[in-house]
Write a protein that binds this DNA or RNA. Structure first.
Lengths: 232, 232
DNA sequence: ACGTAAGGTCAACTGTGTTGGCATAAGAGT
DNA sequence: ACTCTTATGCCAACACAGTTGACCTTACGT
């Protein structure tokens, strides 16, 4: 019960666990990501993490104040992955599109983790860097501060929102996935008298709904920004 | 232990609980909504629900296969509330806007419940009705089936995605809310050398980020549909 | 070489979803 | 009105969750 967790830089003495591994924030987060992938979004627990790291669950509390703080760290790691290797080209439209796609993709690449962490503001390093990047692109494009903030808001919310939604359906355990398939094919069996449009659209729905609507939504937003820039 | 839950219509014998109340799906869902509002999105549990209904937690399994199915029922109730009293005017743009706002609003009005249920396809009655309504509006506007399905997809995903995001920040317990405020004001204290754009935008961010970006995103989508209709 | 405290471990607490077995009263059929 | 059936309530128990306080040990700064 560390009242205060020692920050990663201040960490001095590294004692190995009984299994011989030396812990670190990094190692814990990576292992958590692995567990999430293997056991689904509800498959991460202090106990399982302890098992995987061969340490007592309570040890984790030396590194994070609780499972919630660990969750935030996982989220920040995802954003870090999204940004790694990116640099602005100078074309605001390309840059914004790339940032949006990268963030969306990073979350969707870890759906089980994304489910836990989207829609949480962490204020950690990588998230700050991402916000700074987006605002920088918009300001460089010529938007005044106030407008840039509004666009930034729509942009980041839209990206995270779609990421969350897309991740959620990807993260469903197999059983639930098959259940959702059932639902869509149920649509096909609906009587045309009560649900004519659903019955008509059913075959198309089954194929359309497995794709993400994010790319088209993103282009819509970019168009809107272009219009605003042209008007000024 | 009930392998199969008896469906609501087939329910015959209504025995009151020890507290004298007669249970029903409806009563259970309503009580769950109350608990969610009072105790937050993680405040719903079989045991607490049992306590509130004055019945044994296991009794709930006579009505729902598990907490997950109860969750889906809650979600469907929200959609039902969104649709209740709505009818099409014939103006596709007004109708679509109204549907979007109503659904978004219904979720945001129950943020704690929305957090649990957005991004879950239930296939229950009210959800079917909503899907049918949206498709009906689009077809009546003159869109061919394939296009209507694509727009429907973007529309419904966008609405749910923003609802989820907006609900999530509304549903944060007070402590976390204050923590998020902290984060935004931390932005203001960032050194302008490392994060110039964030530092500049900080005061605007603090006020902008508490508003929903959904209304503007919705108008963007409606514009896109109008363009497509005009082209045909 | 020593003393300190970081950080590992252990045991225990409360709360969770879920299930199998049992009991009872509501309603159907006569 | 009497029975018979069974829907639906209750109880006890299970394995799992997060979290904490006390304890111990070993790596490091001096």
């Amino acid at each position: 019960m560390p009242k205060a967790v020692v920050s990663e830089e201040k960490r001095r003495r590294r004692r190995p666990t009984r299994g011989g591994r030396v812990l670190s924030e990094r190692l814990i987060v990576d292992t958590a990501l692995r567990l999430l992938r293997e056991h689904g979004s509800s498959g991460l627990s202090a106990r399982r993490l302890g098992l995987a790291l061969d340490c007592d669950p309570s040890t984790l509390y030396r590194y994070f104040r609780g499972m919630d703080e660990l969750t935030l760290a996982i989220g920040d790691t995802l954003i870090g992955q999204a940004l790694s290797g990116w640099s602005p080209t100078g074309d605001w439209r390309d840059d914004l599109r790339a940032l949006g796609r990268r963030i969306h993709q990073a979350y969707v690449a870890h759906p089980q983790a994304a489910v836990l962490t989207t829609s949480r503001v962490t204020g950690r390093a990588n998230e700050l860097a991402a916000d700074e990047a987006v605002l920088g692109v918009l300001r460089a494009a010529g938007l005044p501060v106030a407008a840039a903030v509004r666009v930034y808001h729509a942009f980041i919310d839209q990206t995270l929102a779609f990421a969350a939604l897309d991740a959620a359906s990807l993260a469903l355990p197999n059983a639930a996935l098959r259940a959702e398939d059932e639902v869509w094919s149920t649509y096909a069996r609906l009587p045309a008298t009560t649900h004519p449009h659903l019955a008509e659209a059913a075959p198309l729905l089954a194929t359309e709904m497995v794709l993400s609507a994010y790319p088209s939504a993103l282009e819509l937003l970019l168009d809107a920004v272009a219009t605003r820039l042209a008007a000024a």
